[in-house]
Design a protein around this nucleic acid. Structure first.
Lengths: 150, 150
DNA sequence: GCCTTTTCTTGAACGGGTCAAGTTATCTGC
DNA sequence: GCAGATAACTTGACCCGTTCAAGAAAAGGC
């Protein structure tokens, strides 16, 4: 992997968002890039493989700051904890497995801004339409017992 | 309100789902009908105005059982606790206010099963497409400070 | 290099939701 | 109607993701 190049990109991203460049932040960005849709705990674990001293609070803070500046996207399907991904600004959506909870990316077939024209918005000013597909992942749909969520 | 009629309907619904008819369950159904998109705490409070002795655990159990049988629908926008509604099976969606969190119903303009044809589903067997619109409610979009979420 | 401000560490606390054991109530069959 | 079987409810403890608060550390501007 050309980590030097992306490392510099991450720095650019942070500076562009008026965020200081710190080791925890770079480590979080690397972790989210390596583990798309990872929850906070997984990000923390991944970060600590490179930066063992980073606190869990730092990871919460960093993920919050990155999400606020739009550098990462936070998703949270019903019944799941918060998950994060680097893919941002391309209006893609997610499939969630009802059985094991795994998440995958889906490009919406309709186009760039699908379903954004709701029929009656009750006076809401809408800026985003988020689509979540629910179903069973390949593994869970072929297994004999179809539901083994804890 | 013609509560006798709907009371009988609620009984039918429960029996039809192989659920015993109990006072807590009827009270929860009434509460959800009266307070669409209410969270568990609000449902509990509403239930206790009629059945003061109902435990919080009972409300969790009842809402879970009703949701599992499809008598109520559970929604959980990112950053929100679980919310419940009686409107079921009509494939409607929700607008959520980014500022105050209020939820409103939206009939999708596209049709009965919008966006259900995802471009590449990675082998998932999809059974539902859930659309969440994000924006500002009328109150929050007209107030001077546009963001006062706690 | 120094100063200001942001960021991180430490450690406690919060709250929605769940677990578990025992009691109560609903329904079925007589 | 009544008794037994089983589903549902009460009580109370507990879990865990997330947040709060205070002080220490480090990044960036001068």
């Amino acid at each position: 992997m050309d980590d030097h190049a992306t490392e510099a990109e991450f720095e650019q991203l942070l500076r562009g968002a008026d965020l200081r460049v710190t080791r925890p932040r770079l480590a979080v960005l690397r972790a989210v890039r390596r583990h798309p849709h990872a929850d906070t705990g997984s990000v923390l674990a991944a970060v600590r493989t490179e930066e063992p001293t980073v606190s869990h609070q730092a990871v919460y803070d960093v993920l919050g700051a990155l999400a606020d500046s739009g550098l990462v996207r936070r998703i949270q399907p019903a019944g799941s904890v918060a998950r994060y991904e680097l893919r941002v600004g391309d209006n893609h959506h997610h499939v969630v497995c009802r059985s094991c909870g795994v998440v995958a990316d889906v490009d919406c077939a309709v186009g760039v801004r699908p379903c954004l024209d709701a029929s009656d918005t009750h006076g809401f000013v809408i800026d985003e339409a988020e689509v979540t597909y629910w179903g069973l992942c390949p593994d869970c749909s072929t297994s004999t017992t179809s539901d083994h969520r804890s």
